[in-house]
């Protein structure tokens, strides 16, 4: 249990998937202009990551990992090189599936998240989360916690970024620095802030 809590705290704050591993930068920079859309996208990422990371864990450990096919009588087969293609396919399929389910059962949630779901397939944070899960050889319960808290970390970063950008509109930024450049520097300062959590021991 303690282990799970430390994975959660670590992936939300210290090892924030956006600020420490730079994943999901593209949509982070494109969507963070507006607080409302940023919140929507953040929630969608939490939602999708919580589902895709465990599903990919199952796929990897039951089909792809070295020796995983022992239940099918093929203990020597190592298909782990296929993980890239299968992970991205699963993510695309799950996103599509979630979209249809939400549309059917909760039109209000669909209206809020709908536009962002297709964008998420190409968000590197999702695929990155699944790949990190393999690289760090998490167990199933660790993967569930990791997926959810990485998503939460990403959402936290994009929501605070959109809040900062709102204030930044009143600032007098030099001409060449406007737009992309100042956003990167702001993100850098945010990353410094998040790194301070590394000093906290639980």
């Amino acid at each position: 249990m303690e282990n799970l809590i430390s994975i959660a705290v670590n992936s939300i704050f210290v090892g924030n998937i956006l600020l420490a591993y730079f994943l999901g930068m593209c949509s982070f920079l494109a969507i963070s202009k507006n607080m409302k859309t940023a919140t929507g996208l953040g929630l969608a990422v939490i939602f999708v990551m919580t589902i895709t990371a465990p599903v990919n864990w199952l796929i990897f450990n039951l089909l792809l990992a070295p020796g995983a096919l022992a239940w099918g009588g093929m203990p020597k087969v190592d298909l782990s090189f296929l993980k890239l293609v299968l992970f991205i396919a699963t993510i695309a399929a799950i996103v599509q599936g979630i979209e249809m389910v939400i549309d059917r059962f909760s039109p209000a949630l669909y209206a809020a998240l709908g536009v962002f779901l297709p964008l998420i397939t190409v968000n590197c944070a999702i695929l990155g989360g699944s790949l990190f899960m393999v690289e760090r050889s998490y167990t199933f319960s660790e993967t569930v916690v990791y997926g959810m808290s990485s998503g939460a970390g990403w959402a936290l970063a994009i929501i605070s970024m959109s809040a900062i950008q709102k204030k930044l509109r009143y600032a007098d930024v030099p001409q060449g620095l406007q737009g992309f450049a100042i956003n990167m520097i702001t993100t850098g300062l945010m990353a410094i802030g998040f790194m301070l959590f590394a000093g906290i021991s639980l």
Partner: peptide, 25 residues
């Protein structure tokens, strides 16, 4: 030491783009 860590990358790329925009303009 900041340059090795994540924030260094953000700040360097920000300054890089600033320089490029200024030169292009």
């Amino acid at each position: 030491g900041l340059m090795v860590l994540a924030p260094g990358a953000f700040i360097i790329i920000g300054l890089f783009v600033w320089l490029e925009h200024t030169l292009l303009n």
